[in-house]
Simulated assay, not measured.
Amino acid sequence: MHRKELSYYLTSFFTEYLGNEAGLSINTIKSYRDAFILFFKYLEEAGIFKINKLKMDTLNVDNVNRFLDWLEQSRGCSISSRNQRLAALKAFCSYVARKSPEESNLCQGVFKIRIKKAPQKPVEYLCVDAVEYLIKMPDSHSTQGIRDLAMIALMYESGCRVQELIDLSVGDIAFRSPNTVTLTGKGKKVRVIPISTNAADIIKAYLNSAGISDVAHSVFVNRYDKPLSRSGVSYVLDKYGHIARKARPELYPPKLHPHVLRHSKAMHLLENGVNLIYIRDFLGHSSVTTTEIYARCNPELKRKYIEQAGSLITESVEEYSESEKEALIAWLRKNI
């Protein structure tokens, strides 16, 4: 049987499978595309193959391992970026293996490459005072200032991701009791989030000031009436973070990025006793395991867990069953 070339599978993977059958977001597809662009760049730089002569055998375990090392050592990529590129290659191999079982052995080699563990960074978040002070920074008497205020307020209140904010249309916000915003997250999953009357009033004032009323119109736009970019959102937030930091340096990290507000909302919900399951749904996480990072990073919450565990201790000591021992160990691993 004549083996098909790598380009054949790549074409159908990107044009048919990812967007249609898998239903992945544009950003994820772009990330996968970038992974292959870098992989081809590595192959050319290493003198392994020319792009116009790529066979499926090119995607072998040795080439992929060397590519991953090249990303870290030559390009200075983080371990997280390295793992993302590997995930893209694995997703492609999974597709190829299903489409052409004769390529399974080749794909199995890539499947066996393990992700690289990175030191877990502490979650950066702002205290309530820092969020309140940050919201005072924009000039609400100017169209740009009220836009920036509305953006910061909504990012915090809804805990939305940057892309969810950028994709937001006027029709996604319901100005009624209760006020809500409909967010479309990863995998096109939709969730409805309540927002306060104050936040809703700020957003309404901004839309009125900017003359935006069409339900299909993007909520947050630049001076050219185009949707804000990810870098545009980051610039706005860091600008006000810089101003706030000058007056209250103890409240802010060296740089504010949009995810800080998402982290902050999650931590404040957790600190107020909101269940992790609700926070998972609020943030749009696929698993509560992802949400548990917030429970692990706060020393005060750890102390509360330990106190709760201590309150369960009685004067009578009974021998633990095996299942109770396993449950206790699992609880400690999760919370401490």
Rank of each mutant, 00 (worst) to 15 (best):
R303V: 08
A174P: 04
A200V: 04
L71G: 04
L38S: 12
K255E: 12
F14M: 00
V64W: 01
E292A: 14
Y278D: 06
G185F: 09
L228E: 06
T184W: 11
R3W: 00
I306D: 08
Y32L: 03
A22I: 05
K50T: 11
Y133R: 04
R114E: 14
I113R: 03
V215E: 12
L183P: 00
K325R: 09
F36H: 02
N20Q: 10
E132V: 07
L89W: 03
E72G: 06
I336V: 08
K226D: 09
E102V: 12
G232Q: 05
N63H: 13
I166P: 06
I152A: 11
S209G: 11
T11N: 03
G241W: 01
V274E: 12
D129Y: 13
K136G: 03
S213R: 11
H141R: 15
V233Y: 06
H259T: 08
V260L: 13
I277E: 11
V96R: 01
Q308N: 14
E72Y: 15
V110W: 00
D201F: 14
A97P: 06
K50L: 10
K4W: 01
A330M: 07
Y133V: 07
H285P: 11
H217D: 12
Y8S: 01
S12W: 00
G76I: 09
Y240L: 07
I279G: 00
D238S: 08
S286N: 11
Q308V: 02
L301M: 10
Q144N: 09
S286K: 12
E21W: 13
P178F: 07
F36W: 04
T314E: 14
D62K: 15
S100I: 14
S104C: 15
V215F: 13
I336D: 13
R75S: 08
K4F: 02
V317N: 13
